[in-house]
Amino acid sequence: MQLLDYIPFLVEGVPWTLALVFSGLTMGFSLGLPLSLIEAFGSRGAKLVVDAYVWFLRGTPLLVLLSLLYWGIFPSLGIKVSPFIASIVALGLRSSAYQSQIFRSALLSIESGQLLAARAMGMRDSQVVMHVLVPQALRIALPSWSNEYAIMLKDSSICFTLGVMEILTRAKYISTATGSALFPFLIAGLLYLALTRAGVEAIELLHRKVRIPGTLGGE
């Protein structure tokens, strides 16, 4: 087979990579947002627990986390998981730590006057958080969140170590099958580059749609 004949096989890795990234980001979001609320408004004890969680996940390489989960934690709990699921859990846990920091600083950047105004209108604290603070924090956080997408996209390549059939795993197969490394890895790199640009542009478009009027970022 010619090298070019392998391109479809490589491109079939794109849905796998995107599945890893979107599942990881979703998991990171659903854990990270509640964590950020604790970091911003929680009690001191709860904050300490979240701080320790964030410290652990931000200081452990994804590769080590992945190995710990796949070979260590899941088997010792008696849970059988596929490499794909283990990868999503590792990406999601790590991202939850990063996303909690993104949302925390977004929450804290909202003027305290808004909180007072909402209370003055008779809203309960939970209502203030749900209807006033979180909707704004999500919009403020969007540019940093786009960065998180770019990081996770590139990090998803690490899942090749478990043989998830994403882009890099396929590039490695092609390189073994054809004896040429330059071509498959270069195409793989360009695919990642294109996916990063496309995603970042899409989020930027979304940001322009939902930006908050009257703020510096919203002009």
Partner: peptide
Amino acid sequence: TAILTGFPLLVTMLLIFFGLPE
């Protein structure tokens, strides 16, 4: 910088190790 920040580090590393010999 656009290429190096757009490629995953692993891809860059594999390109240097397996690709440069070509």
